[in-house]
């Protein structure tokens, strides 16, 4: 965690204040988009809770005594939602799922792994996809279960997988089909 290097603009005070100029605002939003994704990836954060995020180093640079407003953070997360890199998990928009890799990308990575390891037609648990011993080293190992499920939804819509559950609904599994 300690080896994360903040971008240079993190120490730039205006970075923390929403810019009124449209063009500058666009630059700021795109800078924050990459910053949030990079920060969350480096700190293994997948579910971002707004209030605690505001107090975390992500939104609070104590060194220059600048703090991002809640409105600004929401705006940046809405932007991530628009690029499919985030998703509001609660209806009151208090927690967001941050996805440095979009569900489409994760879906492609999962299916590619299934294909190259000859597991098409097999049944796997959702748990073993993100925490199993066999997926260690893949790009989707350690991802949030919600994101894995989103990726599986993508595969299901492509007819490449089907999510189902056996005895208990919380222990979902997935079966993969030939493309």
């Amino acid at each position: 965690m300690g080896d994360y290097e903040f971008p240079r603009f993190y120490s730039f005070p205006p970075f923390f204040t929403l810019q009124p100029n449209e063009e500058t605002r666009a630059n700021q939003v795109s800078a924050w988009r990459n910053f949030i994704l990079g920060y969350c990836a480096a700190h293994n954060v997948s579910q971002l809770e707004i209030q605690s995020a505001l107090d975390s180093p992500l939104c609070h640079n104590a060194a220059i005594d600048r703090k991002l407003s809640e409105d600004a953070l929401r705006l940046f997360i809405d932007d991530l939602v628009a690029t499919r890199n985030a998703e509001w998990l609660t209806s009151d928009h208090t927690t967001a799922l941050i996805m440095p890799a979009t569900p489409d990308e994760v879906a492609a990575a999962i299916y590619d792994w299934i294909d190259t390891t000859g597991q098409i037609g097999d049944v796997l648990t959702v748990y073993e996809l993100h925490s199993g011993d066999t997926t260690v080293g893949t790009s989707f190992h350690g991802l949030d279960a919600v994101l894995i499920n989103r990726a599986l939804d993508v595969l299901a819509s492509q007819g490449k997988a089907k999510v189902f559950s056996a005895s208990s609904p919380e222990d979902a599994g997935v079966k993969f089909f030939p493309a």
């Binding site: 049944v123 073993e128 056996a166 599994g173």
Partner: peptide, 28 residues
């Protein structure tokens, strides 16, 4: 016919495998 439901059927066998794999995950 990838979207065909007959092709994407989950059989009793699949459920049995899933149950076992869930047990395996829990033991793990």
């Amino acid at each position: 016919n990838k979207s065909n439901h007959n092709d994407m059927e989950i059989t009793a066998h699949d459920r049995a495998v899933l149950d076992l794999k869930n047990q395996r995950d829990k033991l793990g």
